[in-house]
Design a protein around this nucleic acid. Sequence first.
DNA 1: TGATAAACGGAGGGGTCCTCCGTATATTAT
DNA 2: ATAATATACGGAGGACCCCTCCGTTTATCA
Lengths: 193, 193
Amino acid sequence: MAPETSKARRKPRADSLRNREKLLAAASTVFGAGGGQASLEAVAREAGVGIGTLYRHFPTREELFEAVYRNEVDILHALAEELLREQVEPVTALQRWIHASVRLFATKKGMIEALQLATQASDELKTYSMDKMTGSIGMLIDRGVGDGTLRDDIGPEDVFRALVGIYYSQNQSGGPTAALRLIDVFVDGLRKR
Amino acid sequence: MAPETSKARRKPRADSLRNREKLLAAASTVFGAGGGQASLEAVAREAGVGIGTLYRHFPTREELFEAVYRNEVDILHALAEELLREQVEPVTALQRWIHASVRLFATKKGMIEALQLATQASDELKTYSMDKMTGSIGMLIDRGVGDGTLRDDIGPEDVFRALVGIYYSQNQSGGPTAALRLIDVFVDGLRKR
DNA sequence: TGATAAACGGAGGGGTCCTCCGTATATTAT
DNA sequence: ATAATATACGGAGGACCCCTCCGTTTATCA
């Protein structure tokens, strides 16, 4: 009983799921280091699986890109939830989250370029990540607004836009440290005074 | 006597020069069709020379790109001179030249992208092509201004910028015919009234 | 008409892409 | 537990590409 959609299916094999995770992680580091056009065989090697397994999971390079990207976004979302659960003080929570996201994407520069340029990132992906990101930010600032530590006239989208701006400025000059400094200034400005 | 700079050198071999031209032409068509990351072996095949010869002439992919690009720019410059020499009526001359340039670059889309993105096009190249292009345009409009068929308040740079704008708009939507139509409108606007 | 500097071609080592299929294993049914 | 089988796995293999190296050919020059 309870087939997902039709034709009672087995449940997915555990090793398959495991390998998928391994591939995602490997792709993240390999693309991060070697740019978006790094060898897929290198990814498989790093993941410790056969090349065939990689191709079964991600038939095209673009699909792998997309999956990795989605994964990063999901990780950030999970982090936001964790920060909330742990009752971290709102301003520091927000600060930590933003730092994490900057660091995460800073290393993925090449990958992001590849994504945008090569595949023109499907609209679906764009809205997906947009929603997740603003959602995460929203959760974090709401708490701060609630307890009066953060101003209430700045929406999640505004913060997100500011972030994107900083990603870019950082890609050009100054390196990641400069960006993180700017972040701190920005977050400080979000405090209610 | 008369060594070019020092150490009396032989003059370059004729076959070498010929092959260089063949390679340039081949690269132009191959990159035009298959995008900027097309195989260099394909270029050599198309040119009918060995792969070794290609690498001797252009040690890196970027050097080949640059050379092809310079070559296209030079061709357009030569076309401008020819139109002048043949005393073609100024407005039609300008129109023809612009059409030619749009067509030439329209097929080279991938190549141009590759140039800009991959190698960040050396400043020297940029100013070189800028000068050549505005120079060509300058020659053509000067004649028109001289005989009173073209307005005299538009500089070559303005025309060039308009062109670039049209290259881009065309790359997105409508295809090359739409661009050519826009060109006609634009050139018509350049007429003295 | 040599001599010889210069250029040519392409084999070869190393790498990547992607497919295909025999083998191994997780699930499910008994 | 165990057998049956749907799934997933790994990696060999064919095709292509990069780039170097070097024996052979050829255009120049004396």
